[in-house]
């Protein structure tokens, strides 16, 4: 039986660094990064291990940052009970979620639950602020990329809205 707590404490002992960088390279928030920038980012990234069914965060909980899925899968839901659970998204390796918390102090707008044993990478507001102090150019690059990701999501939402309005019966 795998214990998430002990996995978190000892995971650094046999972790392959290239795995982390390979995962980070799939994330659009970190696009156009040089190898040196990835190694600087890697120093700040947090590795977390979750067991199947573990909450990564709960709806309305205070949010501190984003997660990237290195291994395993995660579902994003609203609703607290199995009977009223509404799955908004099912995410797999290389996907990321919770990035809005990097920008604002608003609570989480959904639950994130591991649907298998999962290894996640965490990047948090504090890390972004540290990076902004230590390497402002890199910090700005992340903010710019995040802006692009949020812009894409907004465009996606807009087109869904337009589609929904156009299919609505008059």
């Amino acid at each position: 039986m795998k214990s998430a707590k002990w996995e978190n404490i000892f995971k650094g002992w046999n972790r392959s660094e290239s795995d982390t960088v390979l995962t980070l390279k799939q994330v659009p928030v970190f696009k156009d990064f040089s190898d040196k920038e990835f190694s600087e980012l890697e120093k700040l990234i947090h590795h977390r291990t979750y067991s199947n069914g573990d909450y990564i965060f709960k709806n309305r909980a205070p949010g501190e940052g984003m997660y990237i899925i290195m291994h395993g899968s995660v579902k994003i839901t609203i609703g607290t009970r199995a009977d009223n659970e509404n799955i908004l998204a099912e995410l797999g390796e290389g996907d990321f979620f919770g990035e809005l918390a990097l920008f604002d102090d608003e609570p989480r707008s959904a639950n994130a639950i591991a649907t298998s044993d999962a290894d996640l990478l965490g990047f948090f507001t504090q890390d972004l602020m540290t990076l902004q102090e230590r390497n402002p150019v890199l910090g700005q690059k992340i903010l710019f990329n995040l802006g692009g990701v949020l812009g894409d999501r907004l465009r996606g939402t807009n087109s869904l809205l337009i589609k929904a309005q156009s299919t609505r019966p008059n």
Partner: peptide
């Protein structure tokens, strides 16, 4: 130190 924080309190501990 951060790694030793349990998942439940991770974000709060980090803050």
């Amino acid at each position: 130190l951060v790694n030793a924080i349990p998942n439940k309190y991770f974000e709060v501990g980090l803050k």
